[in-house]
Amino acid sequence: MPQLDPSVFATQLFWLALTFIPLYIVLWKVALPRVTDVRAARRERVEDDLEKAEALRAEAEAALAEYEAALADATARAQAAIRGAASEVAEESVKQRDALAEKLAAEAAEAERRIAEETQRVIADIGTMATDLAQAASSRLVGGTVSQDDAKAAVDAVLQGDR
């Protein structure tokens, strides 16, 4: 078995040392620190990006809150305006209604006053007309003349009796 031939031990050990030790030094001092650096840089970058994303999210949330506050404010103001306008309109309509009612009442009173006046006048006229009528009728029916005062007294007596 060639493995057990001591004559090749020295050369194998020599070349093993001559290859393994430089490889160890190169990997230790040059190659592996580079891998470590790249991985650290990547981790840093990822963490940085996460932080940035977190900041952006906070900013977006603040903007949303601001927008909602503005919206709520605008809504409140619009509702206040609507309420103001509605109460104004209601007040106006009440005023108009009152004015109309007043006017109608005045007109009704005027009408009643005129009716009463007319009634008085008519009542006053009825006496004269009845007197004239009674005078004329009696002269036609009875002949002769009845004095106006007599006729009037008679009419008044009848009218009084009616009352």
């Binding site: 004559s7 090749v8 020295a10 050369t11 194998q12 020599f14 070349w15 001559l18 290859t19």
Partner: peptide, 8 residues
């Protein structure tokens, strides 16, 4: 003997 061999 430290010859450069096929192993080396």
């Amino acid at each position: 003997d430290v010859s450069f061999t096929n192993s080396a």
